[in-house]
């Protein structure tokens, strides 16, 4: 009987995009982090349901800062996506511009979040609502910081010209993580800012 050996054509070396192992690694990271936020929000809803109306010290949280800030974070995702397109197409200026814009918008989000925290009338030690509000938004801000650090690293390396055109895999991996950080914010935002208007 015939032995089976390789007869195919050329294979990509350290492939880019979805064919790479790094991409799958980032998806694993995103899966486990998504679970982390699911457990965080579970804790919030679990205590909210057990405690019932009157638990939250702010039954109608203001959207004045959080609303526009959400749009800023989404815009940051769009900028990152546009910059990633530059990396794929070998357009270095577009790549640097898009990634830099994403960093800038992400940083603005972070600063507005600090003001949002300061504007709250309750502290984490006042009760379980405060504890969970600051823990969950704090976890998200920590992820924004990590995402920004990663964006700054790949943008810096792009400036230095350390990525050959085909070696933009780290850019795609960081950008998808950034999209994830933004998507998580939508869940956090819906939980703390939108749901209370529906719940009580």
């Amino acid at each position: 009987m015939a032995e089976v050996t390789y007869t195919g054509g050329p294979l990509p070396v350290a492939a880019k995009g979805r064919n790479s192992v790094g991409w799958l690694g980032v998806l694993c990271l995103i899966a486990t982090e998504a679970c982390l936020f699911a457990y965080l929000l579970f804790s919030y809803f679990y205590i909210a349901i057990q405690r019932g109306p009157g638990w939250s010290p702010e039954p109608n949280p203001s959207l004045a800062m959080a609303g526009p800030n959400t749009l800023i974070l989404l815009a940051s995702s769009v900028a990152a996506w546009w910059g990633e397109g530059g990396a794929k197409g070998g357009q270095r200026t577009r790549q640097l511009l898009g990634l830099s814009l994403a960093i800038l918008l992400g940083a603005i989000f972070l600063i507005v979040q600090v003001f949002e925290w300061k504007a709250k009338t309750f502290r984490p030690t006042d009760g379980s609502y405060g504890s969970l509000y600051f823990t969950i938004t704090g976890f998200h801000m920590a992820h924004v910081v990590v995402g920004l650090a990663m964006l700054i690293a790949v943008t810096g390396w792009s400036w230095l010209g350390l990525f050959q055109p085909r070696r933009h895999e780290p850019v795609s991996n960081v950008v998808v993580y950034w999209h994830f950080v933004d998507a998580v914010w939508l869940a956090v935002f819906a939980t703390f800012y939108l749901a209370p208007h529906l719940m009580w």
Binding site: C35, L40, I47, Q50, R51, P124, T125, S128, L132, T135
Partner: peptide, 28 residues
């Protein structure tokens, strides 16, 4: 694993920083 890591982190906040997540009076 994130579930237990989170539980232990929240417990640490409760114990050392005066949070109230697992507190019978206000948490659960």
């Amino acid at each position: 694993v994130p579930s237990v890591s989170l539980a232990f982190f929240l417990l640490w906040l409760d114990r050392q920083f005066g949070f109230h997540v697992f507190d019978a009076a206000d948490g659960q």
